[in-house]
Design a protein around this nucleic acid. Structure first.
Length: 283
DNA sequence: GGCCAGGTGGAAA
DNA sequence: TTTCCACATGGC
């Protein structure tokens, strides 16, 4: 028996696009069109009906904060550049929001994401939860994402058994640094973007791309602009046509200038649009 | 069966 | 400084 859900207003929001946009990987779609997942350690069901979300009673505030329903999307859209590529992405991704993820879960998931497709990241994430996380009573088969301490106890071979490949050593080393107290992810909240980026890049398996993902999806640094293979292609195709191949620093500087304080939103829209377009082509 | 995937880190040029 | 390369795994 599923309990009745309770409503919260969610104007200008698209739950499905948001959960399928490659920023979070553990939510499961149910038959009725809703989703089931964990916000940190709290389980919830979320179903969208127009401008309204129906959620597990007691999780209303948590859900609203997680999905960043307070972000002013109108102001964010108004800040986007007017070029055709950006406007096409905006048209395709209307209502997609950058969510606020738990810091460790976000960072750890993106450490495992290097050179992996979105579907694989999900597989690894679920395997790690089931193997090292904690079961959620009454919500089988949901498991919490393993804490740094839970992962620090594992061996590299056990992590490889979850399909991590060469990423296993990095995840383990970073988990141990955090479990030992050598690094405090929450303390980075007090730092400026650049300082937080540098601190994250000091962790094993964390370079500029993954650090920017953690800043954007975990630390709510909405100007962060992760550049992966997809975004790299988009930038070259639409913004660097017939120019000499730009260096990483040139790409980074261009993105900061062109996309501004909400560059992270622009980036996510360009990313999701590029990926879904490609999927359409295959059909 | 080769190609590619939300990269990083260390060596070589 | 840039460029090159190894590093696992799985879907198409």
């Amino acid at each position: 028996m599923k309990k009745a859900l309770s409503p919260i207003p969610a104007p200008l929001f698209d739950l499905r696009k948001t959960l399928h946009s490659g920023q979070v990987f553990h939510w499961t779609e149910e038959e009725e069109g809703g989703f089931r997942g964990l916000i940190g350690e709290t389980p919830t069901r979320v179903r969208q009906e127009g401008g309204r979300l129906w959620v597990t009673p007691g999780t209303e505030a948590l859900v609203a904060r997680y999905f960043a329903l307070d972000h002013d999307l109108a102001a964010i859209y108004a800040s986007f550049p007017g070029d055709p590529a950006m406007q096409a992405a905006l048209g395709a991704c209307h209502g997609l929001r950058i969510i606020r993820q738990p810091l460790w879960e976000c960072l750890a998931t993106f450490i495992t994401s290097a050179m992996k497709q979105v579907a694989h990241i999900r597989q690894m994430s679920l395997a790690l939860r089931e193997r090292f996380g904690s079961p959620v009573p009454g919500w089988s088969p949901l498991y919490t994402y393993p804490t740094p301490r839970q992962l620090a106890r594992a061996t590299e071979a056990e992590l490889r058994a979850c399909g991590l490949g060469f990423r296993a050593a990095n995840l383990l080393a970073t988990a141990r640094q955090i479990a030992s107290g050598k690094v405090d992810l929450a303390a980075l909240c007090a730092l400026e973007d650049d300082a937080a980026l540098a601190a994250l890049c000091g962790l094993p398996g964390v370079g500029p791309k993954i650090a920017n993902c953690a800043l954007l999806f975990g630390y709510e640094r909405l100007a962060s602009f992760p550049i992966d293979v997809w975004i790299h292609r988009v930038l070259l195709r639409h913004y660097f046509q017939r120019k000499r191949r730009p260096t990483p620093a040139q790409l980074r500087d261009f993105a900061a200038r062109a996309f501004g304080p909400y560059g992270g939103y622009a980036q996510q829209y360009l990313f999701h649009h590029a990926r879904t377009e490609k999927k359409q082509e295959r059909k």
